[in-house]
């Protein structure tokens, strides 16, 4: 499981981070200002959120915006690479499921 280094014990001595909240598929999740949305999820141990056409689960793979595995719908816009997108307080994230039929 993925995890974030607790800021209190991180040897690089970060300042106390400022919190933010986003919702993911309707569930409110706390993150830190400056995290990418993928970073928020990974910090909570969530490593998978997309479902492929074949029904397989995906999360971050390349971490730098090249593989597009981590895409999700953010504030109504589809296909946003979560590893590149900074989280903003109040962001609404909807995971993408390619097995779903047309609405």
């Amino acid at each position: 499981m993925s995890a974030i280094v607790p800021w209190e014990t991180d040897p690089i001595r970060p300042d106390e981070p400022k919190p933010l909240r986003i919702t993911v598929d309707g569930t409110s999740i706390e993150g830190l200002q400056g995290q990418s949305i993928a970073g928020v999820l990974l910090a909570h141990g969530i490593t998978e959120w997309r479902t492929t056409t074949a029904g397989r689960r995906r999360g971050v793979f390349c971490g730098i915006g090249v593989c597009f595995d981590c895409i999700a719908t953010v504030n109504g816009e589809s296909d946003v690479r979560l590893c590149l997108r900074r989280a903003n307080d109040g962001d609404t994230v909807a995971t993408q499921d390619d097995t779903r039929e047309a609405q």
Binding site: I4, V5, W7, D10, A38, L42
Partner: peptide, 9 residues
């Protein structure tokens, strides 16, 4: 992720 997020995968 380690450098830019302080996340261990």
């Amino acid at each position: 992720l380690a450098k830019g997020e302080r996340v261990a995968v």
